[in-house]
Amino acid sequence: MKYICQICGYVYDEETEGVPFGELPDNWTCPMCKAPKNMFLPEDAEEEERKKPDMEIPELQDMERLPPGVLAALFSNLAKGAEKQYQSHQEKLFREIAAYYEAAVPEIPDADISLLMKIAERNISLYGEAMETARRDGDRGAMRALTWGGKIQKIITSILSQYEKEGESALENVDIWVCTICGFIYTGENPPAICPVCKVPSWKFSKVV
């Protein structure tokens, strides 16, 4: 039986590895991307997972179409678009607008880790819903972004739940790295040789201090 990592695609083949997947300890992680054991699905189930119909999505209430937080990201992305075209002055102006909107995001009442966890979990279903729409439209670009983001969202929830279980010791003596291209979060002494999600080389990772 083969088990496949839903984050990086690593294949755990029970035949060659010699240890049945079920007998691996709970704290076993993907040798490639450090995803936890529950991110692996049996090879045939992986196909099923992909075909799963839309999940029930909780209604987002009073959601403005483009709230300040979205405008902040929209304009910091346009700043990157200007930067890539070597328009450094335009980049600076877009950053100024992005910073304005970032500061304008209202405080969220009752913000705590468990609310963060709930939103992260909701986002997994929002990614699923968006992916269905993008697939129906044949929008490859959107599918690309949603594939990356969906994987990252799963990693986020698993790191958060690990922290909820183990507290500070979950991240003791270990560095946290963020892929500056796709936002993948990796914990370890050194960043991976290539990002398991978007495949950029290790120097694109930045250490969180």
Partner: peptide, 14 residues
Amino acid sequence: QSARLSAEDIMREG
């Protein structure tokens, strides 16, 4: 950091 990068990418493709 990660949430911002994802939101940027979503709006890029949106």
